[in-house]
Nucleic acid binder design. Structure first.
Lengths: 115, 115
DNA sequence: TCTGTGATTCTATACTTATAGAATCACAGA
DNA sequence: TCTGTGATTCTATAAGTATAGAATCACAGA
């Protein structure tokens, strides 16, 4: 029996999708996931992706506001990490929408063990 | 051995995420997935979500441009359907990024058979 | 406490997106 | 071919987002 859609969850997921819906920010997420669970400091993200510090700071702020990243301070360094709980929520939502109900998408077509 | 990230795929996924990153358009996708594979005509989408026709038309155009929906004409009616191939690509990308490499997110935590 | 480095916030600007009424186009039935 | 309905395109405006230099804040080491 399919759950009634949760309006708050939909809103939250729309905001997360929007936050990841620009190339700079999606690349930031990629980078943080590839550096998971250690994370990265702002300067290294900026030099890796060639983004000016003030621009980068705004992107990180947006990702943080949507809960997609976490920050911890270590002296003068700020370590940013991907927030896996938020990503789980988002992926779970997308899977429910696409693979439950009418089974428009089959999970085994998306997640292939060998990939 | 992790694949080298595909820049074109990342760009395309950023655009798809952006297209689904507003509440009206995410709800349109939910609706089309719940009506899959039949799809829905524009008027019914608009009355269901209470969106004026010109606004709705722009949203559908955006989703179509990013490949997230397909259209077929039947007389005066346009039937919009979710494009499952695009959704598979997007979900696959997100899974690769989140669950491969450092396995930041575990697939079994996202997709639960019982849900 | 002074100095240098990491990072954010201030400020400004350009650009993109969202919204929606009015006009037009597309099609089918009389 | 005229008419009505479904849907898009035209037009305009409001709102939001992205970018980045300059100024400031935060912290640690001398």
């Amino acid at each position: 029996m399919p759950k009634k859609p949760d309006p708050d969850l939909t809103t939250r997921c729309a905001d997360m999708l929007s936050a990841m819906g620009t190339e700079p920010r999606l690349r930031i997420m990629q980078l943080l996931l590839s550096a998971h669970p250690t994370g990265m400091i702002v300067g290294d993200i900026g030099s890796e992706l060639d983004i000016p510090s003030s621009t980068l700071s705004h992107h990180l702020d947006k990702l943080k506001n949507e809960g997609l990243v976490k920050v911890r301070r270590d002296g003068t360094f700020l370590w940013y990490t991907a927030n896996t709980d938020a990503l789980k929520e988002l992926l779970g939502f997308l899977f429910d929408e696409c693979c439950s109900r009418n089974k428009a998408v089959k999970p085994e077509e998306v997640f292939q063990a060998g990939r």
